[in-house]
């Protein structure tokens, strides 16, 4: 090489060009909106798990058998609901338990009003800070018309109610 001064200019130009392209790329990509990515995955996993559990509680074990979810909602049995839900939710294949917590409510319609009735309250020993990343899963439940069902809080007519479960990892 006799004189490589020109080549150095070229290199400098390339470097400057790359830096400009990089800057432009970053500026452009900042305009596309991304929300916090990492929290989506645990949310997605929790939501899927919660939906599965509600669906399985809504599936009788035999044809015409007892539907756990309907029974729990109909009889307003919050302890059994929480116990069954968490038993399904926290079960892992290696036999250990996961650490998920839940609260639940039932939404129903009374004439033109939508009312909400708590089904499972947050247990008092759990300090619910409100900072937990909770997900909400829902399931429709249909209650049959049954005039003899007097302890039913939702009245005697046939109705569809929405069970909403708030699920979070402690």
């Amino acid at each position: 090489m006799v004189n490589d001064a020109g080549q150095l200019y070229t290199m400098e130009g390339i470097a400057a060009g790359l830096i400009m392209i990089l800057t432009a790329y970053i500026v452009v990509s900042t305009t596309s909106i991304y929300t916090t990515g990492d929290t989506h995955i645990p949310d997605m996993q929790l939501e899927q798990l919660g939906s599965d559990v509600l669906a399985m509680m809504d599936t009788p074990d035999s044809n015409g058998g007892e539907n756990q979810l309907v029974e729990f909602v109909q009889n307003n049995s919050s302890t059994e609901f929480a116990e069954t839900f968490l038993r399904y939710c926290n079960a892992k294949t290696d036999g250990t338990r996961d650490n998920l917590h839940m609260s639940a409510s039932v939404t129903y319609r009374e004439n033109s009003e939508i009312k909400e009735r708590p089904l499972v309250a947050v247990a008092p020993d759990e300090t619910w800070t409100g900072r937990e990343s909770a997900v909400r899963v829902t399931r429709w439940v249909q209650l049959d018309e049954n005039a003899s069902r007097r302890d039913d809080p939702y009245g005697p007519r046939a109705r569809a109610v929405l069970v909403e479960v708030l699920l979070w990892r402690a």
Partner: peptide, 15 residues
Amino acid sequence: NEEVEQDIIAISLER
């Protein structure tokens, strides 16, 4: 049951 239909529509919209 028509009431059930109303339940589903109204609660879907609200919740």
